[in-house]
Every structure is written in structure tokens, then in C-alpha cells.
Simulated assay, not measured.
Amino acid sequence: MKIDTRRDFLKISLASGFALAVQPVAASTIQTDSEGLLAGEIRIGDMPGYRAQPAGTSAALPTVIVIQEIFGVHEHIQDLCRRLAKQGYLAIAPELYYRQGDPRTYTDTNELVKNLVSQVPDAQVMSDLDQVAQWAASHGGDANRLAVTGFCWGGRITWLYAAHNPKLKAGVAWYGRLIGQASANTPKQPIDVARELKAPVLGLYAGQDKGISLDSVEQMKAALKQQRQPFGMSVYESATHGFNADYRPSYHEAAARDAWESMLKWFRQFGV
């Protein structure tokens, strides 16, 4: 599915529910309510997104941009925003594929990656994330307390955005790819920008990840030591890729809980 016109952009809406490619969902799926929150779909220009924040507050809120997995801003990503809002954050998850198509309508993961995800340019994503940060600052967010976190595809983007935005205070990358072949849409990988970080980043990885080798994690750690920003790299030895995805068989409860607390501590440590 390709989206080519402004009129088509506006057709994508973030309905509740899970992407077709990940159904049926696991019994371990966590559902966070929206009690005490302002939560729901927003529009940032043409870009759809999901926003959750504490309701009834006039103070500027610390902001976390939540970057989607390959499956888009489906129910799991929306739930993560609500979890962050319960911790006092303005959490925003933009649908970063909206120009290229709707990832939630694909039933096959390989087709999703080939026909949609691989068509999304990094430069476009960086620009869209800048737009999200600007929107947040004018809609109740504190521009001086901005963080980013991302999962899988979004984990890779987290590293890139930490090298892109000098206003970012902290980032947390969940099992995002670190090395790989350059292409027109993805000219650089996280290891290529490791010395250019403008904010401290914590990387959360899995010892049993079949797609992200521990060797690549060690290579990234070596590269990070050549720059001045604080960083962290945690490896959960018994976990697999997607260990925070509670709606999938990959979910590893102990690793997910520890990593989530580590993320919150990382944000607090650097003033977000």
C-alpha cells in the first residue's frame, strides 16, 4: 500500500487495536487505563499521532517522544504512552510511516518491511521528529525536558535522533539495530553516528537476539567510548528480541520490568 497525496495522508487514523501482522495477541498483554489522563489521537500537521498526559495540569510537562516498532502506532505503542503519562510525562507517538502507508493493515511482516518500512527515509523521520518536538513544546510540554525512546525499528531511530537534535536531554533505545548496509533511505547506522551523540543514550539489548548480535553491541560500546556523552548498554542474557512486547511470545517479563525502571531512572538522571 502506497500513500501518494495529501488527501490520502488524512485517511490514516489511529484506531485502537493491534496490527494485523501480530494477531492473535498473547494473554500476557498489558492494558493500561486512561483514568486521570488526557489521551487519544492528535494531528501534527498531516501526521497522525497518539498523545497521553496527566489531565488537569497547567505546568509544562517533561516530554517523551515514543518511536514505534515496525508495526506502527498500534495498541501496544499507545499503551506505552499511557504508562509514561501515569509517570507524569507528556508522551507522544507519531505515526512515522504515514506518507508511505498504514503498517497496521499488513498481515505479513516480510511484506510490511519490504513494501513499507524500507521505503521510509531517515531524513524524513528526523524532520518529522523535530516537528513533534516543536508541537509538544507548544501543547503543554517543556522544551527543556525532552527525551526519546524507541522499540525495534524505533530503537535504531532513537540513536540517530540523539545524534541529530541538540535539544534532546536523554534517549533510551530498545533493541534497535546498530550496524548494517547503507542505502539511499538509510545512509547511516547508529554505529556511524556514535561519536556524534548530543544526548546521553541508554541501549537495552537481548542476549538471545537472533537479529542483533552481541558482537555488534560490543562494537557500539567501543565506538561510544570515543565520545563525551554518558551512555549505557544493558544486555538481558536470557531475553530475545522484542522482550518488552507483552502482546507477543517474545515477552520476557523480568527483563521488561527491569528495563522499564532503568529507562525511567535514566530520564530522571538527566533531568527529564
Results as ranks from 00 to 15, higher is better:
194 A>H: 01
229 Q>T: 15
126 M>Q: 15
45 G>L: 10
59 A>Q: 10
130 D>E: 13
197 L>N: 11
68 Q>C: 04
210 K>M: 06
225 K>R: 15
271 G>I: 08
244 N>R: 09
135 W>N: 05
236 Y>H: 11
233 M>H: 13
59 A>E: 10
159 W>A: 02
262 S>N: 11
194 A>Q: 03
219 Q>K: 13
263 M>V: 09
235 V>C: 03
135 W>P: 09
10 L>Q: 14
258 D>R: 15
3 I>D: 00
63 T>F: 01
211 G>E: 12
268 R>W: 11
186 T>P: 00
146 L>G: 02
223 A>K: 12
70 I>M: 05
59 A>M: 04
86 K>G: 07
161 Y>L: 08
242 G>A: 08
105 T>K: 04
78 Q>Y: 00
131 Q>F: 05
194 A>I: 06
184 A>D: 14
70 I>T: 07
35 E>A: 13
26 A>C: 06
17 G>H: 02
66 V>Q: 04
243 F>N: 02
125 V>M: 13
247 Y>S: 05
29 T>A: 14
188 K>M: 13
215 D>A: 07
103 P>D: 02
141 G>Q: 05
177 R>D: 00
55 A>C: 06
239 A>H: 08
4 D>C: 04
236 Y>C: 09
158 T>M: 01
248 R>D: 03
104 R>A: 04
15 A>E: 06
159 W>R: 05
206 A>D: 05
169 K>R: 13
35 E>L: 09
12 I>E: 00
164 H>C: 10
107 T>Y: 00
23 Q>D: 07
2 K>Y: 03
46 D>K: 01
257 R>W: 11
26 A>S: 15
147 A>P: 07
33 D>Y: 04
142 D>W: 12
228 R>Y: 09
260 W>H: 11
52 A>V: 12
247 Y>F: 14
21 A>K: 01
90 L>G: 03
265 K>Q: 12
80 L>M: 12
5 T>Q: 02
115 N>L: 08
193 V>G: 08
60 A>W: 06
11 K>Q: 05
173 A>V: 08
25 V>C: 02
55 A>D: 10
54 P>A: 08
172 V>L: 07
250 S>Y: 11
50 Y>E: 02
245 A>E: 04
209 D>Q: 07
123 A>I: 12
125 V>Q: 09
115 N>F: 05
71 F>D: 03
1 M>L: 09
266 W>D: 01
138 S>C: 10
